[in-house]
């Protein structure tokens, strides 16, 4: 990315809170995020680190209870936090595609899969489809009777499903979601998310609910489709190895803050933050000398309290006095590799 190029996603100092009965939950405590066109950014962190809340806010789909306290989110020139409903709907349909964690419940049980993947086309008649399919058929469709239209949509649905590699797409298009396997459903969700060639895909733990073998297939599918269309990707996961395989840049989040940002290779080779190190050491290695698997002792902090200093300090092996009083400034360790730590490795 050159310095003059405007990033596709630009998040500045985002803070999100939840008001709950237990008190205010500080889910996201000031994160910055840039994603340029065509780039794949991975966000890792354990449950409750705020990664899902952060990306859902970026998508303009924050919970009713979530309150954005501060910060700005700009995606493809749209101020997501201030945009009106019309703009947001257009943005959701045409600029953004989202793939969720649970393909079992992401498809509506009362519609056929074909109807669902083509729904986004019906909602946004001006959007364009991959391979110019829509344009090809649009003229013909206009002059069709009801039967012809139905056949047209069925064919279009099948084409979209073929695009994501579903076997026997015509039959899949006429199936209901419960008749498909988890992997097939997730592929259908991807077909729907990508139907209008969005500029950004947000995948929130897209493979968590799938078998390991299917996981690899689904991620490879997203990679492949991205390579064709130059779409950017934000991939949220708690699996560091998955993220590093599929992303250019990895962001490590802890307790609602970004603690380290690096390219995938750098992160694996020379992680600087003690938390990132801890995560890497918790991954089993099959090569090299045997070593015991190391966990990170303790648990993430209670995010109903505002933390002074570094939230990781209580669990950190390299903690120094300053850690408990102030959150560290951003430190650039090499080109494109930054860490937020007073005492990095």
């Amino acid at each position: 990315m050159t310095a003059t190029e405007q990033p596709l996603v630009r998040v500045r100092d985002l803070r999100v809170e939840f008001r709950t009965r237990r008190g205010t939950v500080h889910a996201v405590n000031g994160i910055d995020l840039d994603v340029s066109q065509g780039e794949a950014v991975g966000i890792v962190g354990e449950s409750g680190s705020g990664k899902s809340v952060a990306v859902m806010t970026v998508a303009g789909l924050g919970d009713a209870e979530a309150r954005v306290v501060e910060g700005s989110v700009e995606v493809a020139g749209i101020d997501v936090l201030k945009a009106n409903k019309r703009t947001l709907r257009r943005f959701h349909g045409r600029t953004l595609g989202i793939v969720f964690q649970n393909p079992l419940t992401s498809l509506d049980p009362v519609y056929t899969v074909g109807d669902q993947v083509t729904e986004v086309l019906r909602l946004h008649p001006a959007g364009k489809t991959p391979n110019g399919l829509r344009a090809l058929f649009a003229e013909i469709a206009r002059s069709m009777n009801a039967d012809g239209k139905r056949a047209y949509w069925r064919e279009l649905g099948a084409q979209l499903l073929r695009h994501v590699g579903l076997p026997d797409p015509l039959r899949a298009a006429e199936s209901y979601s419960y008749q498909l396997s988890g992997g097939m459903r997730q592929r259908s969700m991807i077909a729907s998310a990508l139907a209008l060639e969005p500029r950004l895909i947000i995948a929130d733990e897209p493979t968590t609910a799938l078998d390991v073998t299917i996981q690899a297939q689904v991620l490879a599918l997203i990679d492949g489709l991205r390579a064709m269309s130059g779409t950017s990707l934000i991939l949220v996961s708690h699996d560091l190895s998955v993220v590093s395989q599929h992303c250019d840049v990895v962001i490590v989040m802890y307790a609602g803050r970004v603690v380290e940002r690096a390219s995938s290779e750098n992160l694996f080779r020379e992680a600087r933050h003690p938390y990132t190190r801890g995560l890497l050491e918790a991954i089993p290695q099959f090569e090299g000398p045997r070593r015991p698997l190391v966990g990170i002792p303790g648990a993430p902090p209670d995010n109903t309290r505002e933390v002074e200093g570094c939230p990781f300090a209580p669990r950190c092996t390299r903690v120094v006095d300053r850690c408990r009083v102030e959150f560290p400034e951003e430190t650039q360790v090499s080109d494109g590799h930054t860490v937020w730590c007073h005492n990095p490795w």
Partner: peptide
């Protein structure tokens, strides 16, 4: 609360339409 309602929202469907369709 079902994800497919959120999914409908993510493809830019309006709320009244979600009530009718989902």
């Amino acid at each position: 609360k079902q994800p497919y309602v959120l999914a409908a929202r993510t493809i830019g469907d309006a709320e009244p339409a979600i009530v009718v369709k989902q």
